[in-house]
Design a protein around this nucleic acid. Structure first.
Length: 756
DNA sequence: GGTGATCGTGCGTAGA
C-alpha cells in the first residue's frame, strides 16, 4: 500500500501531532502533498471531535486560520472509507461567491480521495442539479434558500438524497444569528432530521462569536447538551490601530454624502473642509497598496469613491479606488474583487459590509473605517481582513465631529461618535464583542415554514405542524394557543384552508406564494429600479428614490444623467455626466449594545487618554469630556432645558426604546436623539416622579408596550399576522423591559442616596 | 425648534 503513514511522517508536518494520526492515510497523504509545515492549532483541536461524529462542534477562530480544513480533513477521513450513494456531508454557506470559493478548495482536496463534491445555488445549471438528484453522493455545498427549494419542489426525494447524511457544516455561522434567515436555517435542519429520523452532528464555523456559549446554543436549539467548542487562543498577531479625528466646520446640509439640491442639474460636489481633509488623508495613506475602506452606508461608499477617483484624475494617475456595495451589479463587484486578488496594480475597495465575509480577496495591507463602527463584532470582522500570515493587522478609524456653536444641542457637544469609537476599540482590545441577540419569535419565518411544510405533504394536521415547528422545533417561543391564533390568521388571508377531515392544506393565496421562486427566501427585499448605461448593467436603486428624466446622480463611483426611464420594466437608462448628488438608500437604523454605552460612560468618567488617538482626536475627546462635566452629567443623568428635559441612560438601543415607550404610556412626548432621550413639556421633577410611579407599579409587559408602536410590519410575511401576534413578535426582537426597569430602579436608588 | 436615520444575503421553470 502506497498510502502509508510512513510516507507522511518523514516529511515533518505530522510529527508529534496526535490529531494527524487520527486522519485516514489518504487524507494524511493529501496534507503531506500540500506541504503544510504543521497542522494549525484549530485543526489540531477540531479533528478528534469532528471525527467522532457524535456531538455538535463549534469552531471559532480568526480569518485564514484553516477552519474549513479543520472541519473537512476529518469529514473526508470518514467519507473516504465508504462511498455509497446519498449525500454524506452537507455544507451550508450564506453567499454564492463563498460557495464557489469553497467548492474549488474542497474539490481540489477531494480529487485524489474519490469523494465527489457538488455545489447547488441559483447560478448552478439545472442539468447539474438533476444529475445530483438522480445519483446523490459525497459532499454538497448549498445555500439555505436552495435547501428550502429542495423541500418545496422535491419533498418526496429528500429521504433519498439525504438519508445517508453524516455531517452538517455551517460556514460563517455568525452571519445567521438573530435573523429571519438564521431561524429559517435552524428550521430546515430540524425538518431534515425529522425526515430522515436521525440526528446529524453539526459543525459551526465562525471568526466572530461574541459569547461562544450563546452561539453554541443557536447551533441546535433545545439541545440537551452543549456542543464541543474549539476556540484556540489568538496566535498573538500584531495589531495596529488608530483613531483619527476631524472637525466639520460646515452646516450639516452641505455635507458630502447627504448632498441634496432643488436643482440637481446645477449641483456640484464641493465638499466642506473636513471631508476634503479626510479624503486627502485617505488618498495619501491608501494609495499605492491594496486596502479595504469600509463605510457605514452605500451613500458614503459612493461619495468617498467618487471623491477619491476625482483626486486620481486631477493628478493624472490611474484610478485606484473602486466602490463595492450590494446595489452594484455582479459584474462591477466581481471586477473589483478580481483587481484585488490579481494584485497587478494597487487597488482600494471602498465598500460596505459586502466585503466583510470570507470571500478570498488576497492580501490586504490595511483596513480603514469611515465613521464610527456599527458594532464591535463588525469592526473585528473588518479588521480580520488585513494582516494575513506574518503581517500586522492595521486598522485606521476616521471620525468626524461637527464644530460646536451656541446652537449645538448638548448631546452633540459630547463627541459621542468619537467616544463610541474609543469605547468599541477598548472592548475589542479586551476581547469582547456583541453576543447573539436573545431568540425572538420570527413569526414571519414561521409563516414561511408552515406553508413549506404543508406544501411538502399536501395536507397536514395542525397538531403535527405545532409539534414539528414549535413544540420541539426552533419556534419554541410560541405556545399552542398562540399558534392556533396564528393558523387562523393564515386562514383569514387564504394562505391555508381546512379540509373536511380537519387537516390543513394551502389556500389560493398560499399556493400563489409557494409557487413563485421568491418564496424560498426568508428575508424582505425592496422593489428596485435597474440602472443601465448602453447595454451595461450598473446595478439597482430602491424604488423609493424618485428620479426624473434629466436628473443627475452618482452611482458605481461615477457621475450620470438619466437619459430615459422604462416605467414598466423599471429600468433607468443613464449616460455619463458631470456634477451630481449621491443617491439616498432607504435604511432602518442599527442598534448599539448596552455594553458599548456603559464603556462610553466609563470613557467620559476617566481621564486616561488612549494611545491609539491622533492629536486632533485627543483634542476632541478632551472637548467631549469637558462638555460632559460642564453639563453636570457626572452627578445626574437628567438635564433640564427650557420647557423640556433630556436624559442619558447609557444603555443599549432596545432599553432606550423601551424607556421611551414606558414614558409615552404616562403621557409624555419622548424622542430619541442619539445617546439622549428628550421629554417635552415635563421638568426634571415631573420626570423623576413619573419614573417613581412606573417603578412602583406592576411591570408593563413588552407586548402591551409594543401594541402602541405604529409601523410594526417590517418582515416579509408580517402583513398576514393579526395585531396581537405582531406586537408579540415586535416585543421579542426590539424591546427589553427588564433592562428598562433595571435602569429605572438603579437611577432612582442613586438619586435617593444623594438625599433627594 | 428640530435634527437624522445600516448593511447584507437569495430563488426555478418553461419556453424560445
Amino acid at each position: 500500500m502506497t498510502d502509508s503513514l510512513a510516507s507522511g511522517s518523514e516529511s515533518g508536518p505530522p510529527q508529534g501531532s496526535r490529531a494527524f494520526l487520527l486522519l485516514h492515510p489518504r487524507v494524511q497523504r493529501w496534507v503531506w502533498r500540500a506541504k503544510w509545515p504543521a497542522l494549525r492549532p484549530v485543526q489540531e483541536q477540531a479533528i478528534a471531535p469532528v471525527l467522532a461524529a457524535d456531538e455538535d462542534v463549534l469552531i471559532a477562530a480568526g480569518t485564514a486560520q484553516g477552519k474549513t480544513e479543520a472541519a473537512f480533513l476529518p469529514i473526508c477521513s470518514r467519507l473516504v472509507e465508504c462511498s455509497g450513494p446519498g449525500v454524506r456531508a452537507l455544507y451550508v454557506g450564506p453567499l454564492k461567491a463563498l460557495i464557489n470559493d469553497q467548492f474549488r478548495r474542497l474539490d481540489e482536496m477531494c480529487e485524489g480521495l474519490a469523494i465527489p463534491v457538488h455545489r447547488w445555488h441559483g447560478d448552478v445549471s439545472a442539468a447539474k442539479k438533476s444529475k445530483l438528484v438522480k445519483s446523490p453522493s459525497g459532499i454538497l455545498l448549498i445555500t439555505p434558500e436552495s435547501l428550502e427549494a429542495q423541500f418545496v419542489l422535491r419533498g418526496t426525494r429528500i429521504v433519498k438524497i439525504f438519508g445517508q447524511l453524516e455531517h452538517v457544516v455551517l460556514d460563517e455561522f455568525h452571519a445567521y444569528l438573530g435573523s429571519e434567515r438564521g431561524r429559517q436555517l435552524q428550521s430546515l435542519l430540524h425538518r431534515l432530521e425529522l425526515a430522515i429520523r436521525r440526528r446529524v452532528p453539526r459543525v459551526g464555523l465562525s471568526a466572530t462569536l461574541g459569547d461562544v456559549s450563546l452561539a453554541a446554543a443557536a447551533l441546535r436549539p433545545l439541545a440537551p447538551r452543549h456542543p464541543t467548542i474549539v476556540s484556540p487562543s489568538n496566535s498573538g498577531q500584531e495589531l495596529r490601530v488608530q483613531i483619527r479625528g476631524y472637525r466639520i466646520d460646515a452646516p450639516r446640509d452641505q455635507d458630502l454624502g447627504t448632498a441634496s439640491s432643488d436643482d440637481s442639474r446645477t449641483f456640484k460636489i464641493e465638499a466642506p473642509g473636513s471631508v476634503v481633509d479626510i479624503c486627502a488623508d485617505l488618498f495619501e495613506v491608501l494609495r499605492g497598496s491594496n486596502n479595504l475602506l469600509f463605510t457605514n452606508s452605500r451613500s458614503d461608499t459612493e461619495a468617498i469613491s467618487d471623491r477619491l477617483r476625482t483626486m486620481c484624475e486631477e493628478r493624472r494617475l490611474p484610478n485606484e479606488f473602486f466602490p463595492h456595495h450590494g446595489n452594484l451589479s455582479k459584474e462591477i463587484r466581481e471586477d473589483v474583487e478580481r483587481r484585488l486578488k490579481e494584485g497587478r496594480a494597487p487597488v482600494t475597495a471602498v465598500c460596505t459590509s459586502t466585503l466583510e465575509l470570507g470571500i478570498d480577496l488576497g492580501a490586504v495591507t490595511s483596513v480603514a473605517q469611515y465613521g464610527p463602527p456599527m458594532s464591535v463584532a463588525a469592526m473585528r470582522q473588518r479588521l480580520g481582513r488585513s494582516g494575513r500570515r506574518d503581517e500586522p493587522a492595521v486598522l485606521r478609524i476616521y471620525v468626524r465631529e461637527h464644530e460646536v456653536t451656541e446652537k449645538t444641542a448638548p448631546e452633540d457637544s459630547l463627541r459621542a461618535g468619537l467616544v463610541q469609537s474609543i469605547a468599541m476599540l477598548n472592548l475589542l482590545l479586551n476581547g469582547w464583542c456583541e453576543p447573539p441577540p436573545p431568540a425572538a419569535l420570527h413569526l414571519s419565518t414561521l409563516v414561511q415554514q408552515t406553508l413549506s411544510m404543508i406544501s411538502r405533504h399536501g395536507s397536514v394536521r395542525a397538531g403535527d405542524l405545532w409539534n414539528a415547528l414549535c413544540d420541539r422545533g426552533p419556534f419554541n417561543g410560541l405556545d399552542a394557543p398562540s399558534y392556533g391564533i396564528f393558523l387562523r390568521d393564515l386562514g383569514r388571508s387564504d394562505l391555508v384552508t381546512q379540509l373536511g377531515d380537519g387537516t390543513l392544506t394551502l389556500g389560493l393565496g398560499g399556493e400563489r406564494l409557494v409557487s413563485h421562486y421568491s418564496f424560498f427566501t426568508a428575508f424582505q427585499t425592496p422593489e428596485e429600479w435597474r440602472v443601465c448605461t448602453g447595454t451595461r448593467d450598473l446595478g439597482s436603486l430602491p424604488l423609493s428614490e424618485p428620479l426624473m428624466e434629466g436628473a443627475h446622480f452618482v452611482f458605481a463611483g461615477r457621475r450620470w444623467r438619466v437619459a430615459s426611464l422604462d416605467e414598466d420594466r423599471r429600468v433607468l437608462y443613464v449616460v455619463p455626466a458631470p456634477g451630481a448628488p449621491v443617491p439616498r438608500f432607504a435604511g432602518a437604523g442599527g442598534t448599539v449594545h448596552g455594553r458599548v454605552r456603559q464603556e462610553m460612560l466609563a470613557v467620559y468618567q476617566s481621564a486616561e487618554v488612549p494611545q491609539f488617538l491622533d492629536s486632533l482626536a485627543v483634542d476632541l475627546l478632551d472637548e467631549g469630556r469637558k462638555n460632559f462635566a460642564r453639563l453636570g452629567l457626572h452627578e445626574t443623568p437628567f438635564l433640564a432645558e427650557g420647557t423640556h428635559v433630556r436624559f442619558f441612560p447609557w444603555r443599549g438601543d432596545h432599553v432606550m426604546d423601551t424607556i421611551a415607550l414606558l414614558l409615552q404610556r404616562r403621557g409624555a412626548a419622548v424622542t430619541r436623539t442619539g445617546v439622549a432621550l428628550s421629554v417635552t413639556a415635563w421638568d426634571v421633577d415631573r420626570l423623576r416622579e413619573e419614573l417613581r410611579c412606573l417603578a412602583r407599579a406592576e411591570f408593563a409587559s413588552a407586548v402591551d408596550l409594543a401594541a402602541a408602536v405604529g409601523n410594526k410590519c417590517t418582515e416579509k410575511h408580517d402583513q398576514f399576522l393579526s395585531d396581537g401576534l405582531l406586537a408579540a413578535d415586535y416585543a421579542s426582537k426590539r424591546l427589553d423591559t427588564e433592562g428598562a426597569y433595571d435602569w429605572m430602579v438603579e437611577t432612582l436608588a442613586a438619586l435617593e442616596a444623594e438625599g433627594e
